[in-house]
Amino acid sequence: MIEVKGLHFSYDRKEVLNNVDLKIHDGEFIAVMGENGAGKTTLVKHFNGLLKPDKGEVLVDGKSTKDSTVASISRNVGLVFQNPDHQLFSETVFQEVSFSMRNFGYSEETITKRVNFILETLDLSSYADTSPFMLSGGERKRVALASVLVSDPKHIILDEPTIGQDYHQKDKLRNFIVQMNSQGRTVIIVTHDIEFVVDCKPRVVLLSKGSVLADGCYDSIFSNKDLIDKASLMSPQISLLMASLGDLNFDPKIMDLYQAKTVLEGKLKNCL
């Protein structure tokens, strides 16, 4: 469990997190959303101890991050940075992705097996011997994802995982993290990609100006126009389509593509 209690945090000058309380249970799937500068990245950097609270505390599996090093927390908490360039440093993709497991002391055999598996999963196999700096932006992001997902951490935190990803890659990534989630891993994504969130169907935490604005199931949050506006979001496409047909009894709470298809076909059958 990750527990945030009365968290305050300032960089040099301004207060960025203002009294954040949050409880994330093992095996939950959470999307953190909110305007640019809301404090999302700052918040999740507290989860692996990269940043330490000025006031309040963050407990990971019952232990305060103040009493632990980033290195020790990282065994259980994997964090993928928003900007992959802050994370990548090795000469080849294979070295990059095997780095953390090597640090954790796994055997070469296990490392090779896991690395090859994760490279395959994220369509990176053909780049194993390539320098991460010769890759496209989206490919670099996937290398950053792979280098954390490879060690199968108990809590997985992904800051903007869909950056640079096309539709297939997003789908694959989603299937993979949903699968890890169903095996009991906690998944926390920070993202502006509302359509991706709709497809993941998580609990959504809206952060605004350093405080939690709302916390709940994605569909109740995304169908609340007031919250959407306050958090600088835009409603999902299907939801907007349904809302525009409200007088014909379409429900704006529907935001899933396939659900919309079923509902529409039901209605069309009756009138054609």
Binding site: G34, N36, G137, I163, H192
Partner: peptide, 14 residues
């Protein structure tokens, strides 16, 4: 503009 919206919140993208 090369993927300009990837870091932007939805309202600012718009």
């Amino acid at each position: 503009l090369d993927e300009p919206t990837s870091f932007l919140d939805p309202l600012s993208s718009y």
